[in-house]
Structures are given as C-alpha cells and as structure tokens.
Nucleic acid binder design. Structure first.
Lengths: 342, 342
DNA sequence: CTCACATCTGGAAACGTTTCCAAATCCTAC
DNA sequence: GTAGGATTTGGAAACGTTTCCAGATGTGAG
C-alpha cells in the first residue's frame, strides 16, 4: 500500500498546469503535444522527481516494456553469452529483461510456461535452445505475444540459428582434408539434453562428411556426454587411453567439449595438435588460450540480434522471419596433419 | 489494448456465483474464505483457464512478485553461478527475476538505477559485487524496497560475503606452510574493476600472510589483470618466463585466474604442482578438471541464500542482517612442496 | 433462546496510467 | 475574413486487481 514518496502523473499535471492526458502524451511521446506544453511537463516532472509506474502503464496500455528470456541454464558459456548480448540490447532499448532458467528437462519448463509466461507481464519472449512442443508454442502464441527462437528450431516460430548439420560437416571435412581418417566425435546425448535436436544435427553433419569422404565411422568413437568441459574431459580420457587404439582427431560438438578433450590429452601427455587434432564449434572465449580451431557462431551477437528481431516485431514492422547465421571458421593451433600421414 | 482471450476475475466471480472480492481472496490466500466458496472459485478458475494479471495485482497491492538482480556481467563463472542460484530460488518461490547487467563501470549502472530500478516494478533487489556509492544506496532505499548485497560490501545494507582478507591469508598461508617462499600474487586491478574492493582485500590478505611469515613480497610478482582466464593466462606467461627467475607458487585471486596460470604453465612446459604450485579462490566448476586447490565459496548457494534473505525481509520477518560465509578449503593436485625445499 | 463474537461476504473505492472522444485552438490558402 | 483541415487539449472511461468497510451469517456460552 503505502508507496514511497510517490508523485503521480496527477501531481505533475497540476504543477505544469495541464491535464493528465497531456502529461501522459508528453512523457510517453505518443500523440501530439505542443512544444510549450511538453517543456512545462518535462520541467515539472524533473522538479518533482516523477517516476512513472510501469505497472499502471502496462495495465492501461497492454505494453509492458518487458521481455522474457527463457534458457536451460545460465552456466554454460553459450547461454551466458547469449544472455549478455540480449541483456545489453534490451537495456539499450529501455526494456526490462525477465529471466527464466528452465533446467534441461521439460518438467520445470512446464511450470515456467504456466506460472510465469502467460501472466501478461511480457511483451515478448526469446526462447533459447529449447525445443518446444507444438502445444507449448501454441500456448505461448495464444497470448498474442511475439516469440523468437534461438538455437533450437521451433515449429512455426521465427528462429535464429546456424546450420548445425552443415557446420558440423565442414568441421569434419577440415579434419579429413588435413589427412585424418581416424576421427572421433564427441557429442551430447538424449540422456543429458532431452530437449534438443542440436546434438543430433551435429552428429549427422559429422557422419555426412565421413561418408562423403568414404571414411568409416567407428561406433566406439562416437561418444556421448553433456556439453561441459568436465563431462567431456572424463569421456575423452577414456577415449584417448583405450587399448584398442586412439583416433588422430576429434570433432567435438561444442568448444567446451573440445576444451575438455584438449585438457584430457594434455593430462595423458599427448600433444595437441602433434598427436591429436581437435576442432569444436562455438567461438568460446577460451578458444584463444587453448589455441582451439573452431567455427565461431558469436552467441553474444545472436542474443542481441534475437532481441532486435523481437523488438522489430513489437513495432509491427516485420513479419517474423527466420534467419540462418553464418559461423566464422577460425583456424588456430589445435588442428594439423595427423602423426603419420598415409 | 486488445488482450488475448482474457478471462478476468470478474468472469470467474460470475461463473462461481460469488463476488470479485471473494475470488481475489480465494485465489491469493489472504483473507478468510469458506471452504465451499474456495472450491467453487478454484473450479471456476480452472475451467475458464483464468490467468491473473500481475500488473493489475501489482498496481492494486503494491507487491510485484518480482525481484531485481543486478550484476556486472553474466559471463564470468562466479556471476553466472550466483545468478543460477538466485534464479532457482526465485522460481521456486514464485517470483520473477529481472536481470540488470551493469557492466563494470559506473556509467551504465547509473542508467540502470534511474531508468529501471526505481520504477516500482520490483519488490526488492539483490546487488552482486557492486560497490554502490552512499547516494546510490540511499536512492535505492528511498524506494522503500529491501536490498541485499552479495560479494561487495555495501554501506548500510545487509550483505552476504566471505571474509576476503582472511580467505586470501589462509590461501597464502597454505603455500607458505608447504615451504614456498617465492610466491607471486595475481590480482584484479582498479583498471579493470573500477567498482570493487575485492581485489584489494585479497591482496591485503596475501601481504598479511607473507609478513606474518616474515617473507618478503617481491613487487614484480604482484601482478594485475582482469578476472578472466585469458587475461591471467597472458600475464602468467610473462611472469613465468621472466629472465629474473620465477616464483615457485602463485596465489591467484580467483579460480579463473588460477586456471589461466595453470594453462600458461603447461604451455611453457612447467608441471603443476611439481614446478609450480597454484591456488585460487572460488570453487570453479573446472577446479576438478585442473586439479585446482582452492577455497570454495559456493556462489550458487550464495545466490539462493541472498534471495531467501530478501524474501524473508519481504515477509517482514527478519531485520536485515549481514552474514559472513565460510568458504570450504578444497585441496587438490595443484599445490605441493616447492622444487628444492630449503 | 439470546447475546457476543468470530467468520464470511459483497459493494465500491482505490492503484496510476493510457486512450477514446469531442471540443477548442491553431494554421493555411483562398 | 473565412472555410477547412490539422493540431492540441481535457474529461472521463477504461485496464484488472486488492482491500476497506460494513453488513450478513455462523458459532458457542450462558
């Protein structure tokens, strides 16, 4: 109840000698106001230290100046980068950012959708790397708010993403071109990423490149783990120490996984790239430190772009249009010709 | 204007055959409602698919069910962990989380404070690692909303943090106890962290331990960089390759910096801990991978705790009370006795 | 059976904006 | 000077809740 100092638009109106309607128009910028009135309103508002109540404005106008960002977790580099980008773009545009971390599974997500998203508190939603079911999408769209997807392909929703299959294919091809034939692939698995088509796409790209080159995929070199350094590190140690022999190159589905492979290799006394080539996808900030060759997909920019796409939709400008982004191939020091070229 | 399907409390009231007042009481849980009425309201609400408008509720009640989290960036491990913890705790409590990334400098922060925080859209604020000026604190508190600090000490505000000086002292002491005398310290600098007393505190702890042990601090081994792996990696390479000789141990002000040191050492062919001991502070998730000895301060839990502290204040329960957290000493494989013990 | 008191309920006034509408004022061109 | 239009204004009705208040209904003790 008892709000703070709370000067309302009414006080400003009184002090400026105009009506509340005029104050509202002057401050919000919609509708015409004479220069004279505008100035008086601005002065009065400044003097009184007027701070508009967003809640009241939202209630009356239906616009909230608040965008929801929904992602599985904020603890992985890709996601925190996207978030940072989105946050910056929203701040700049004068929007609030409401964050929903849904966890990896669908359970939590359900609650987020029902208990939060639908409460008319958001002008729009950016859904990052979530594979929403058709019902969920329908539910979201029923609120008549724009929705932009990032990373995960979402049925019937404008989405920003790289071509995962193609990127994976090119990454693998890079290894093949260097002369590698014994190539392992580290990827996510349904076990860890229930929601997400990404690991599958990247595996498909890998297999495509291999089969195009007529190289056999060894099933025991198709390894699964979560998308973290630690997870991949553990798996890679097994892979590289296997008595049945080890690959000369690894294509990791993400840079974090690639870094896990590199650290595992170092721990085992293998030199990268001399004994083992490693390539990833993402553009991780530590790529430079580890000399990682990768396809940089600039997630921070993606976050900002997704927001801008959403805001454009809010302005009624553009019809939602998906875009496929072009990752940048960055060659560093983690890939080279295999030890004994055939 | 034109909201979606929009069934309001009025429709529910009609359908349940009670007044709007009763519906509000039944759904919000404040005030008395007979079991019979409550049931009818609940049924009606469910059937109509009623979704309350938070904006209207906020406007009327002054409560927003929305907490602001303010931090410099989301891209560093400590912050993303805090955020993840806070997000989980808030989700659980049915609160929204509005995120403000202020950047490292005070400029952006000013705008965040003025343009966003004061707009009565928040029930409370968690300020992470921000050293707010007295005026800023006053400004925030004037809105009569609880404020909890995390990490940075904030004048006159309940704060959750570890004792940075003491923790740094103990970390350094660990190295000294192992027999090290040639110890370098990698720390943040005002240049990179304009806002924050933390680097200073940790350096003071370092110097305290050194002087207690009667060991001289070599000024050229007091190095400054930002709190990132990459930044520290670059600096550490210079440190470890210096012709004037290198230290046998490094105390890094954060785990990310410590990891930078380790990777730099590896790159130079030094073995950790055989040739170089490294210790950090934080409890980074990659600590295990790099075998890093550290003081774990469980930032994720800190985030959750800060939120709970805030919510308790909102319930009018406790007077704001600062708490000093106890980090856990985790000994791994990055520290050992120096190469040639004296 | 009645009285005192607690519990339950509905009407209506907030909360602080935006925006529709109609009226008033200002231009411009003739 | 005036007609016609555009611009500027204010009144008042939303927006969808919560909560104050007073009245109605129930409960238990005497």
């Amino acid at each position: 109840m008892e709000t703070a100092v709370s000067v309302s638009i009414r006080d400003v109106a009184q002090s400026a000698g105009v009506s509340m309607a005029t104050v509202s128009r002057a401050l919000s910028g919609r509708g015409n106001v004479s220069e004279r009135s505008r100035q008086r309103v601005l002065d009065a508002a400044a003097e009184l230290g007027f701070v508009p109540s967003y809640n009241a404005a939202s209630l009356a106008s239906g616009r909230t100046r608040n965008i929801g960002v929904m992602l599985p977790t904020v603890q992985r580099w890709f996601f925190s980068s996207v978030l940072e980008g989105a946050s910056g773009a929203l701040l700049e545009a004068g929007y609030d950012l409401t964050l929903y971390t849904t966890g990896e599974g669908p359970g939590q997500r359900h609650s987020v959708l029902n208990d939060f998203l639908l409460r008319q508190r958001l002008d729009g939603v950016v859904a990052v790397s979530l594979e929403l079911s058709p019902e969920e999408v329908e539910q979201l769209l029923r609120v008549k708010r724009p929705l932009v997807g990032l990373g995960g392909p979402i049925q019937g929703v404008a989405t920003l993403h790289i071509d995962d299959v193609e990127t994976a294919r090119r990454a693998t091809q890079h290894l093949i071109n260097l002369g590698h034939r014994d190539i392992a692939h580290l990827s996510g698995s349904p076990e860890f990423e229930r929601d997400f088509a990404l690991p599958v796409s990247r595996r498909v790209g890998f297999e495509t490149a291999m089969s195009e080159a007529g190289v056999a995929v060894r099933p025991e070199w198709l390894m699964h783990t979560d998308f973290t350094v630690a997870g991949s590190h553990a798996v890679a140690k097994r892979l590289l120490a296997a008595p049945s022999g080890r690959p000369t190159a690894v294509f990791a589905a993400s840079d974090e996984m690639a870094i896990g492979v590199i650290t595992a290799a170092q721990e085992l006394g293998l030199r990268v790239p001399h004994d083992l080539s490693v390539i990833g996808i993402d553009g991780h900030e530590l790529g430079e430190v580890f000399g990682l060759t990768t396809f940089d997909q600039a997630p921070r920019r993606q976050g900002a772009d997704a927001v801008r796409m959403l805001l454009r939709q809010l302005d009624g400008d553009a019809a939602p249009q998906s875009a496929i982004l072009e990752p940048e191939f960055v060659v560093r020091r983690s890939t080279a010709t295999p030890p004994q070229p055939r």
